[in-house]
């Protein structure tokens, strides 16, 4: 019997990579490459993905990849695109693939420059909500209440105190033509959005929520199912912003936030009143998203 597959069969990521058990970021790469195809150049800064392809001379990636300093992904993909334009090779996809720290924190300046110039590139932030490659330190993308090695939970309760940085809103403020969120539990959705992004000229930004069992203190077998609970608890939302118009691409039935949190050691210390506070904020952020969808509809 011929297999009926819902995502492209061709693999541009090989086994033998250095990703941890159940790594969401490797799934993200696998799906992005399935969508982008062979005529793609990747730029990867310091992050898990700087190590996972393998130690020289190995690589698990079947497309050309350029490793760069931590904060330079935006500038690097702009440089690649400028060179391709100069060399008359305009039909090649240029994709930056950076972690949340490399995007929301140290790389935000160069990314802002790229978006401001509307350079024709796709920037992908694979979001595992902390600096995982260096060993689980908090980043701008770490949500409230999270334990990390720099937000330890001792008697003084030094867990992460500030909300997850809203990168899509920051990118929307740059007026770029396409922004989307996605998660590794929905590969078809990633592929659809990457394909769409690559069909649009200008700067495109995607935030792919990618579970990290190691950093989230979670059973690696739960990498896929946890993304479904992240969505239903509103810890992460799937939407697109196309030319300023918001579209919520998945509206799952609400489940309690606590169910999502308690499966992960990084949240298990959170007291009920803090969970209630965070849940109210996440619910209101989701409502806000629906309002944005409503009031930007005409623009679509």
């Amino acid at each position: 019997m011929m297999a009926k597959l819902t995502i492209p069969e061709e693999e541009l990521m090989s086994p033998g990579h250095m990703g941890c058990l159940g790594c969401g970021a490797t799934q993200a790469m696998r799906y992005v490459l399935k969508a982008a195809g062979r005529r793609t150049i990747l730029s990867i800064p310091a992050c898990c993905w700087a190590v996972m392809p393998g130690v020289w001379p190995n690589t698990c990636l079947q497309v050309p990849e350029l490793y760069t300093p931590f904060e330079t992904t935006g500038a690097s993909i702009s440089g690649i695109r400028a060179a391709l334009d100069a060399l008359g090779q305009e039909d090649i996809n240029v994709i930056g693939f950076a972690g949340d720290g490399g995007t929301a924190d140290i790389g935000i300046q160069a990314l802002s420059g790229t978006a401001d110039r509307q350079d024709n590139v796709l920037y992908i932030m694979y979001d595992n909500e902390a600096y995982m490659n260096t060993g689980i330190q908090r980043s701008g993308s770490t949500p409230i209440g999270t334990w990390t090695t720099t937000t330890p939970v001792g008697s003084t309760q030094e867990w992460e105190k500030s909300p997850k940085k809203n990168m899509t809103a920051i990118m929307a403020a740059h007026g770029i033509p396409y922004i989307a969120t996605a998660t590794t539990g929905y590969p078809e959705d990633i592929i659809k959005k990457v394909t769409k992004a690559l069909s649009i000229k200008g700067t495109k930004f995607m935030q792919i929520f990618s579970p990290c069992p190691t950093g989230w203190k979670m059973d690696p077998a739960l990498t896929v199912s946890i993304t479904k609970e992240a969505l239903s608890s509103r810890a992460f939302n799937l939407f697109e912003i196309e030319n300023g118009a918001y579209k919520v691409t998945m509206k799952p039935k609400k489940t309690p936030l606590k169910g999502y949190l308690m499966k992960q050691g990084r949240f298990r210390h959170m007291p009920d009143d803090l969970i209630a506070e965070v849940e109210a904020d996440l619910d209101s952020a989701y409502e806000n998203l629906l309002h944005l969808e409503e009031c930007t509809r005409k623009k679509a």
Partner: peptide, 21 residues
């Protein structure tokens, strides 16, 4: 490429050179 800093100027130049320009 009208970059937003010298750091990005050099980073974009390196990437362009790696691409063969």
């Amino acid at each position: 490429v009208k970059v937003e800093s010298e750091h990005s100027a050099m980073a974009a130049a390196v990437a362009a050179s790696n691409t063969g320009a």
